[in-house]
Simulated scan of single mutants.
Amino acid sequence: MRMTGILPEDAPDPRVEQVERLKLMPIPVMGLVPQPSLEDTDTVGLGYGQDARGYSEMTASVTYTLWRNPTDRSDPMNLADLDEQSRRAIEDVPPWPRPAWLVEQVERMRYPQLWEAVRTTWHRDSSERYSVRSVLVDHVNYILNQYRHELGLSGNPWDQPATTVTDVMVNGQVTVLVNGVEVPGAEVNTDPFVYGIGAELAGGGVVAAVLPRAELKRVQVQFTTRG
């Protein structure tokens, strides 16, 4: 018998379907270069818009697990700062078997996650709205919703979005390494909580990363095509 709301032990891993959906992306999905402090766990989200002509835009977002001490993953410094409710959600094991992939995801919640840290954005039609500066500002403001407590906002992002970064805060005089090549880019280096950087891709589209400033010293900010 399968109870409502309970995944059977043989439930398929949703990441398999995500991989198939990502094949819809007209350009390669980008990520940060492989490095000891970041673990790419294939947690990639795909958003898109459509009209009468088909897909008009797509965005692939890559999430990473952060290891503050990658040489010793048992080091307590690797643990995330969790509230009591989140801790209970991880530690309360239900009396029924769960899919292995779900157990893995729950255990991973013990560690800091860089949610949607890297975005690859494609738009069918070019316009200023889809420029590096505009895409980067949108990404930064989206990630800032994770800092609502620090910004003195309510817990509901629909009440008051954390829109604190504007186009005038973008520095368009920087370079970015993309697949080992230095290219013109743009950055947001004025916010106290996050750092953002992005560039236009040679094959079309934009790649952008928004990272917690507190962890920036542990991250090598260079882009590469995900394997």
Rank of each mutant, 00 (worst) to 15 (best):
L102R: 14
Y130I: 01
M58F: 13
P97F: 07
V188W: 04
P112V: 06
A202Q: 07
V62L: 13
V118I: 02
D167C: 05
Q85N: 08
L144V: 10
A199W: 04
W67Q: 05
L144R: 15
M3P: 00
Q173D: 14
T121H: 12
V106G: 11
G185N: 02
V188D: 05
S56R: 13
G227M: 09
Q173R: 09
S74V: 03
Q35Y: 03
D10V: 12
Y111W: 14
L38K: 09
L7I: 05
E57D: 15
N69L: 05
M109F: 06
H123I: 02
P26Y: 12
R21T: 09
A208R: 02
R21G: 06
S154C: 06
P95I: 03
D125V: 11
V16P: 04
D125C: 02
V210A: 13
D191I: 09
N156F: 11
T120Y: 01
T224Y: 00
A100I: 13
E9P: 03
L144Q: 13
R21C: 15
T190R: 03
G45H: 10
R87W: 00
W122I: 01
F223K: 06
E116L: 08
E150Y: 05
R129V: 10
A208M: 00
Q85G: 03
P161V: 01
A89R: 10
V206K: 00
N171P: 00
E84T: 07
D92G: 02
L82V: 01
P184R: 13
P34M: 00
G152Y: 01
A202I: 01
V206T: 04
A60G: 12
